[in-house]
Write a protein that binds this DNA or RNA. Structure first.
Ligand code: SF4
Ligand code: SF4
Lengths: 133, 133
DNA sequence: GGAACTCGGACTAAAACGGTCCTATTTATG
DNA sequence: CATAAATAGGACCGTTTTAGTCCGAGTTCC
């Protein structure tokens, strides 16, 4: 239940690969190296690019490179890029999202959970891509 | 994606309620107070009882009481009781579970993720039920 | 022009989630 | 002793999420 999705895992693997590479890295290169579905990792890469974490180079011999230093990209950045920023919350009522919980008024644990969520974010924010190369 | 399930939320609400109550608390009492499905909270309570976090008293005027001091029950205990101990992991390859990942051999991020998981557990372990009453 | 890329939407099978329902058992109480 | 109020627990079910595929289109190098 606290498991992160495969897409995020693939995203982290890809980020690590790109960060460690000298030149541009293509989706095929990554999917081959780690035995992941090409289509899947390609989509993840597209999301990472759209979020501005990596820059794409289209056409032949194209691929991706980091958009900024690996030390300036946190795990939170990667997660948000792939899952959407709203997913950053441990419970939906604490994310700035629309749908609030039907229990909201009666809920006695949202404040404590807020504290937990803060601590969790601390963990993901302090861990940078540069630390996993 | 890091969201905890409704069952866990209900479990935490129930634990808080029981910890704050003077006498035994029945499932109906809790489901009424917080406007949750009776059947659902009842099942959660059964799991908590089975895990030894609360003790049940059957029959009329029955219900649940804490099995030990609220300060000795961590959030991890509650999560594990409801979701099963195997769910404690951020990725399945790091839990002592059976099914390992197909990528396992090629995966370059399992060690870093192990460190993250450790930090996460720290958060859930140090937070006790007594802190949410 | 073609090969090797990125881009991006549509689609799907399978699993997880959230929840209901039904039955059996236990126990206090009148 | 009968009954009502509880726990115990399995079966079931509709919806959503996940993980993944497939296909068409645009881009750039050779
Ligand atoms: S209100 Fe309480 S139950 Fe509803 S989402 Fe927030 S924390 Fe979870
Ligand atoms: S091996 Fe890597 S990809 Fe597979 S589960 Fe463990 S961390 Fe995730």
């Amino acid at each position: 239940m606290l498991k992160l999705s495969k897409k995020v895992e693939y995203g982290l693997i890809a980020m690590r690969h790109i960060a460690a590479a000298q030149s541009v890295s293509s989706a095929k290169e990554i999917s081959d190296r780690y035995a992941i579905s090409h289509d899947l990792v390609a989509k993840v890469l597209q999301k990472l690019a759209k979020a501005g974490l990596i820059v794409s180079q289209q056409g032949m011999n194209g691929g991706y490179t980091l958009a900024r230093r690996a030390a300036d990209i946190s795990i939170t950045n990667v997660i948000d890029a792939i899952e959407g920023a709203a997913s950053a919350g441990i419970v939906q009522c604490l994310t700035a999202d629309d749908g609030i919980c039907s229990i909201y008024d009666n809920c006695t644990i949202k404040n404590p959970l807020g504290k937990i969520q803060h601590n969790l974010h601390q963990v993901f924010n302090t861990m940078k891509v540069s630390e996993i190369v």
